[in-house]
Amino acid sequence: MGKKLSKQERLDLHQKSYEMRTNILKMMRYGEGHIGGAFSSLDIITVLYNKILSHDPKKPKWEDRDRFILSAGHKCLALYVTLADQGYFDTEVLWTYNTLNTRVPMHPDEKVLPGVEFPTGSLGHGLPVAGGMALAAKLDKRGHHIFVLLGDGECAEGSVWEAVMAASHHKLDNVTAIVDRNGLQVNGRTAEIMDTSPFEEKFASFGWEVETIDGHDFDSIYHALSRVPFSEKKPSVIIADTVKCKGLDFAEGQFEFHHWHCEPKNIGKAISSVEEKKKEEGARIG
């Protein structure tokens, strides 16, 4: 079961995800941002919006659309560039990042930006809201699916586990959580600050169907996301092993890049680094 990507599709996704990384760096000309988590989750978000979600940028409130909630709201740079690329709003909006009254601040706001399903920022809020959306969908006998992306550091929040327990209790097989397990948070290694592992056993013991993937391998991401729900009457979780700041050579795997205050003079260097990485990886996966 599950679908497979063609070679061309894989290359297209690769191309797209690096194009998105470059756009994020261009946004960072306008200020600081949570680049680490945006880059670690970007490949997953790229697959979701290009291959998985049933959605229509021209009708962002279409009732039967799949929902995507970025529970780790600080990773919103990845969401912004993707929504703009999908056509939810004009790309020019991206270049207002962090300016007065911007529609693209450091946490997403559904009131001002089409495509943002729910405002997030404070951690541990996304999965409870997804549960409510899923219950409403079941009540209305609608078939859409609700995807939620969480950070591994975020999973130290108790409200996450309340929602994990409830989704299983209410048999919400229309919910899929994706944990962006990059292993780092603001102050260092998640394992040292508050060890949220083992995810697989925790989710499984709470009644979820679990699958672990390489969160930068497009085939694995697509294979997992295209098969949800993994089991009837059970919520699904994909634990995605990722690299913080993936794609920016000098920053990969460093917690200091959870949040980056990039000096404008360094943007060019960062874009060159991403371009280099794109070529390197493109040759490998091609």
Binding site: E117, F118, G124, H125, L127, P128, V129, A130, G131, G132, M133, A134, L135, A136, A137, D140, G158, S159, E162, A163, M165, A166
Partner: peptide, 15 residues
């Protein structure tokens, strides 16, 4: 679990 319940209520209302 009132934190979750309030979030669930928000999810129901937004739907």
């Amino acid at each position: 679990q009132e934190q979750n319940a309030m979030g669930e209520a928000a999810g129901l209302a937004v739907s």
